[in-house]
Amino acid sequence: MRRFSSLFLGLALLLSHAAAAVSSAEQDVPRSRFMRPGTRVGEIIDYELSYAHAPDLEVIFPDSTAEFKPFEYVGKTFYPTRTRRGQSIDRTVYHLRTFALDSVQRLSLPVTILRGNDTVAVASTAAVVRLLRTATVAAGAAQAPVLQQNTTPLPVPTQFNYPYWLAGAGVLALALGGFFVGFRRTLRLRYQRYRLRKNHVYFLAQYARHIERFTLSRSLTNMERAITLWKNYLTGLEDNTINSLTTREIVAHYENDHDVNTALRITDRVIYGNQFSEEEAETDMAFVLLRDFAERRYELVSARLRA
């Protein structure tokens, strides 16, 4: 009798442990549900996956590489773990859409549990959503309505073709680069001749203006400005420093050129000695000699660039 009593007590304890294990297992199952009971084709619907577990348990929820069929993954929103009264809850909402035509569609995502070096996948409860039809069928109709054909083309807005334009711009840049490399010396010489001619025209215009002002006012300031302009022009033209040289040094620099020597001696006598000639022909001749000399130097430099 005692033996049967011990056997019955052991069997009762075993059944109670099994019931507790079953109850615990039921509590440990991840829960999933759709946030709406129905959805349309291509419409985004939220799928919630939650799992209540012990705080010391390491849990991994599915990411974008999981199997979502018959749904397509669009995105997800995850929430921080909340622990209350010795129980932690993880929750993630997945944004999905479907293009399947089944009236009822199901999804059950597994949750991965880390236990040392091993992992255990625990399936969640299945969530169900119904597909809402957008094409209505008339009551009592045996077949679906006949589709009406419409082949009239609809206007399509023109879009900018970035790849082709970028490729064209690249080819054009390469062509321009090759042209520049091949004709670099010619282009540089043409540009130098252009600037040389432009500076010479500007010098002649400004030089004539100073001479005109001197003729009208007989002011030494205008004569000094004309001489300074002439020196600065030759300095830039020939890349020298005659604008900082004295008259004697300038004459020596140009190897005692007759026009330069004569013109500068006349202008020095007028400017520094205040010795105006009774006739204006002498000062006019000085201006003409300096202008003609500048013309000759311009032609000399221009011929070097054309060679």
Rank of each mutant, 00 (worst) to 15 (best):
Q87C: 03
D90K: 03
R91I: 04
R91C: 02
T92A: 06
T92H: 00
H95W: 07
L96N: 01
L96Y: 06
R97P: 02
T98K: 02
A100K: 12
A100V: 13
A100F: 14
L101Q: 13
D102V: 00
D102I: 08
S103L: 08
S103Q: 10
Q105D: 03
Q105W: 12
S108K: 11
L109N: 10
P110T: 00
P110Y: 01
V111H: 08
T112N: 09
I113D: 07
G116H: 10
G116F: 05
G116R: 04
N117W: 04
N117S: 15
D118Q: 13
T119A: 09
V120R: 09
A121N: 11
A121P: 01
V122T: 11
V122K: 06
A123F: 05
A123W: 08
S124E: 09
T125C: 04
T125E: 08
T125L: 07
A126Q: 12
A127V: 05
V129M: 01
R133H: 15
T134G: 09
A135W: 10
A135M: 09
T136P: 00
T136M: 09
T136S: 10
T136C: 04
A138S: 10
A139Y: 07
G140T: 12
A142Y: 09
A142M: 10
A142Q: 10
Q143T: 15
Q143C: 08
P145E: 09
P145W: 08
V146R: 13
L147G: 08
N150G: 00
T152H: 07
P153M: 05
Q159D: 02
F160V: 02
N161A: 05
N161K: 08
